[in-house]
């Protein structure tokens, strides 16, 4: 390839066209090579919503279920825990969010979280740390009874999975309540 500044003549055009077509083909060939690493059809299907019966969960208890291979915390909060989560001033939080925005309306006692520390992905321990919420043993992030980050290296609150109440004692994780949104 001669790097001349004059406008390309017909011969150069042929070479450029050939090179371009070859490059486009090469790029297209990369698509399947890359796409194959994405979740396959069976993995996506297995990530279908899971239903959890809340009946057996006692007040003050936190259970762990799995959805899409991720641990989901379901916390049946006590009055005290709810109060503590509500009385804190939002301005003092690293990732401000009100507690009532983190539960479904009228279901203050049920907190459903993705149980993965927003720092580097470990699973925090329940009822531990200075706020009696969650404490991540890997690098010492501390979450409160609303799953919000309070201390430590994690930048964000524990995220909320999509879920909806089927009845007072049954939720389906993996599906947002479309009726009320």
């Amino acid at each position: 390839m001669t790097a001349s500044s004059v406008e390309p003549n017909r011969r150069d055009f042929l070479y450029i066209a050939t090179g371009t077509v070859a490059a486009v083909g090469g790029a297209a060939a990369l698509v399947p090579l890359i796409a194959q690493m994405n979740p396959d059809a069976s993995t996506i299907a297995a990530g279908a919503p899971v239903e959890v019966d809340l009946g057996p969960i006692a007040e003050g208890q936190v259970i762990k279920v799995f959805w899409r291979g991720q641990p989901i915390f379901i916390s049946h909060r006590t009055k005290k825990e709810i109060e503590e989560a509500r009385k804190v001033s939002l301005a003092s939080l690293p990732d401000p969010q009100a507690d009532d925005k983190r539960v479904k309306p009228g279901k203050d006692q049920w907190l459903v979280l993705v149980g993965i520390c927003t720092h580097l992905g470990c699973i925090p321990l329940a009822h531990q740390g200075a706020y009696e919420g969650w404490f991540c043993p890997c690098h010492g992030s501390v979450y409160d009874t609303s799953g919000r980050i309070r201390q430590g290296p994690a930048p964000k609150n524990l995220p909320l999975p999509p879920y909806k109440f089927l009845s007072d004692s049954k939720i389906r994780i993996g599906e947002e309540d479309t009726a009320k949104v």
């Binding site: 042929l14 066209a17 050939t18 070859a22 083909g25």
Partner: peptide
């Protein structure tokens, strides 16, 4: 592509 390569 083969056609272009042929003429090139």
């Amino acid at each position: 592509l083969a056609g272009l390569l042929y003429f090139a």
